[in-house]
Design a protein around this nucleic acid. Structure first.
Length: 499
RNA sequence: GGCGCUAUCGUCUAAGGGUUAGGACGGAGCCCUCUCAAGGCUCAAAUACGGGUUCGAAUCCCGUUAGCGCUACCA
């Protein structure tokens, strides 16, 4: 069983007595069903729950809602763990609904015993549709006497256990949602939903409510798609005789076309692992998602995990859906990219190089070590938006530039002779320099440029291209220093051979 | 179809009766500069529509339109 580590924020909180904690302790849960990969909407729901739990000094629970045996897959479960672990947030308690079925069934039959549920023997194939309004219940089943119901069940006839939604008088089910305020629905518009399937498995509604009650969940933060379900849940909680947890429904994350995010339609961009593989920093990703549907209301954008915890409040959650921007060419929201770049820039060189290692290896940088990456970290840190971009930003530190266009060596308003002249002069100067640090290099090369009457740009470009294989690169002198004299001279020789 | 929810720059959002409707990303331009970045400055860009209420509406009310969700023995 995977364990989430408890974040440092919780450990910093003052400890309270057990009984005091028990009374006010906030308990929230993220309850994915393992029927697909972890997508960014799910990740955001997890993050909001986590932030709320940490803010309140409460408990974050991961509960796998796996009551749909037909659609559950191990691959999906693995993908959820993988995605959540990458977030580096952790969780405090873990449950699987499939291990708690007896609890759910007991709750369902308790509702039945109270007369708030009934057996429906209508075969699934005979379900009737109501073209003019909503389907509410199958005919003849609500009225079955208890004796008749018991007899048919005893005879082995399959049935679904349904909640008996009150229909005698007009009633309203009222929900006080933290985000959407007072929302109500007439019982006349709520169908007799299922509690137990004919195979004896609890439905989502039943399992979810029974577990929320048993786990003493205090607040439910979940996607807005569940807002309409909440009326059913209130009915269940009331029938169970327990208090309904307070709900806060989150506005949904949508695709740029306003449609629901879907892997089938929108591709891998909706999967959390895509962000990881591209080189997002977990806390930058958390920061980005936290800003979708929530605002600290003080114009803060870049926030550390600790700042997010400190600032998080249910009051800052919006009611309208948020669009996450991506295109076929650019799979990541520009703001996500910007935030990641911001967080990348504030990393210590040691941590940056550590985080860079796997991406350097993936890029095939043979000599890449944490030490070497650390040495070049200051040169590439503000030139990357994603860790994966190390492949294109730092290539020449590890691989010999050989395939560039020799024309690139020729500076503005110059010719091959000028480029060759600049390179020869540089080679001469660089060979004799007593030291090879960037300050020495800079003054020497500037003096050399004046010496041969070249503008600095005309002098430096040939060297830069010879050494980096392209015109756009990190600062020249620091780069030369990092590469070392032998490599630099060899590359200048190679370039001279191209001219 | 029925029910529920939502509507501020392209996107994320702030303002909850009185603001030149603010910020950020992205875009454009300028500056800095050995290139690229980063940074600094500037510009363009929004209250869906129609009615009310009010001295005054992005803000409150009604309607329209649009979008989203629920309407399963999925979650």
């Amino acid at each position: 069983m995977p364990r989430g580590q408890i974040g440092p924020v919780l450990r910093q909180l003052p400890s309270t007595t057990l009984s005091f904690k028990f009374l006010i302790m906030t308990r929230v849960r993220f309850a994915p069903s393992p029927t697909g990969y972890l997508h960014i909407g799910g990740a955001r729901t997890f993050i909001f729950n986590w932030l709320y739990a940490r803010r309140r000094g409460g408990t974050m629970i991961l509960r796998i809602d796996d009551t749909d045996v037909v659609r559950n897959t191990q691959a999906s479960l693995d993908s959820i763990y993988e995605g959540l672990r990458w977030l580096e947030l952790g969780w405090d308690e873990f449950y699987r609904q499939s291990e708690r079925l007896e609890l759910h069934r007991k709750a369902a039959w308790a509702i039945f015993e109270k007369g708030h549920a009934y057996r429906d023997f209508t075969p699934a194939s005979e379900a009737v549709e109501n073209p003019t309004g909503p389907w509410l219940f199958n005919p003849g089943m609500r009225e079955l006497t208890r004796a008749e119901s018991d007899r048919r069940a005893g005879a082995g006839e399959p049935f679904v256990l349904r909640f008996r939604v009150p229909r005698e008088s007009r009633q309203e089910v009222v929900v006080q949602d933290h985000v959407y305020g007072t929302v109500s629905k007439a019982t006349g518009d709520i169908e007799d939903f299922a509690l137990l399937r004919s195979n004896g498995m609890p439905t989502y509604h039943m399992a979810s409510c029974a577990d929320d009650a048993d786990l003493r969940i205090t607040e439910i933060l979940r996607g807005q798609e569940h807002l309409a379900n909440t009326f059913k849940h209130v009915l269940i909680f009331e029938s169970l005789g327990v208090e309904t947890p307070r709900t806060a429904h989150l506005p949904l994350l949508m695709a740029p076309d306003g449609a629901k995010l879907s892997k089938r339609i929108h591709g891998p961009v909706v999967s959390v692992t895509t962000y990881r593989d591209a080189g997002f920093l977990p806390h930058a990703f958390v920061n980005f998602l936290s800003l979708l549907g929530w605002s600290p209301k003080n114009d803060r954008e870049k926030m550390s995990r600790e700042e997010l915890v400190e600032l998080f409040s249910l009051d800052g959650i919006n009611r309208s859906n948020a669009i996450i921007n991506f295109t076929a060419e650019e799979p990541f929201d520009p703001k996500a990219l910007w935030l990641n770049a911001e967080h990348l820039r504030s990393l210590h060189h040691a941590e940056l190089s550590q985080r860079l290692m796997p991406y350097a290896e993936k890029a095939g940088f043979a000599g890449a070590t944490p030490d070497k990456l650390r040495a070049i970290a200051p040169l590439i840190q503000e030139r990357m938006r994603l860790l994966g971009e190390v492949a294109t930003v730092a290539d020449f530190f590890f691989l010999e530039p050989r395939s560039y266009d020799p024309g690139e060596l020729i500076p503005q308003k110059g010719d091959a002779a000028m480029a060759a002249g600049a390179l020869r002069k540089s080679k001469e100067i660089l060979s004799d320099l007593p030291a090879f640090d960037h300050a020495t290099l800079e003054s020497a090369l500037r003096a050399a440029a004046a010496d041969v009457k070249l503008k600095t740009g005309q002098m430096f470009q040939p060297v830069r291209v010879a050494v980096c294989g392209r015109k756009n690169a990190p600062p020249l002198f620091e780069t030369l220093e990092a590469l070392g004299r032998d490599t630099v001279l060899a590359r200048i020789d190679f370039a001279l051979g191209l001219l």
